[in-house]
Amino acid sequence: MRNTLIIGLSAILLWSACKANSDKKTLPIYGNREPVTKTVDGKQITDTIYQTIPPFKFINQYGDSVSSKTLNGDIYVVDFFFTTCPSICPIMHRNMLKVYETFKNTGNFKIISHTIDPKHDSVPVLKKYADKLGITGNTWWFLQGKKEDIYNIAEKNYLVAVKQDSSASGGYIHAGYFVLIDKQKRIRGSYDGTDPKQVDQLIADIKTLQAEPDQMIVQ
């Protein structure tokens, strides 16, 4: 009797210990980092500068311009697609819809999908695609821009491979990653957008990011 009590109690303790640990989970910060030493109030302080997404400017499905400034203070998820894509894009956006449905009513959150076929995917084409997908409001933007800008930011900043290739189905090869960016424009996660399990992880990680205390946000 006493033994069972002890076992039961320790089980509860262990369980709550695990739970407390998982609550404190923080996400890694990806990319290069460099230490910077500066003098504040006569004291030398070493700070870490993390790699961030540099300024950009694109146009969304409403014809409005979207720059990195527009996203200041937002957590956002990025992907690359094209509307006539016959391969992985439908799965990606089926999964992204789940992310959209989960967070569409919370503030400071955005999804941005860049077309990698801006020649075909004009603003009206993107608007129609968004309408058919059932996207309204300003949570999920479909962005259009100069092709080299899109390919540059994909490969150099979000670290997602994209390439035009006439032998691939639909004419492009691209990776189906969803990249998670925090409020300071740092990469905090990368998920296979074709895998529902990883997308569930993304949803959990967005919640973790949203719960990150403010002092961590101020750099």
């Binding site: 439908p90 956006h93 089926r94 058919k132 997908l133 059932g134």
Partner: peptide, 8 residues
Amino acid sequence: GEGLSALI
């Protein structure tokens, strides 16, 4: 076999 919104 659920398709995708009004697209598929």
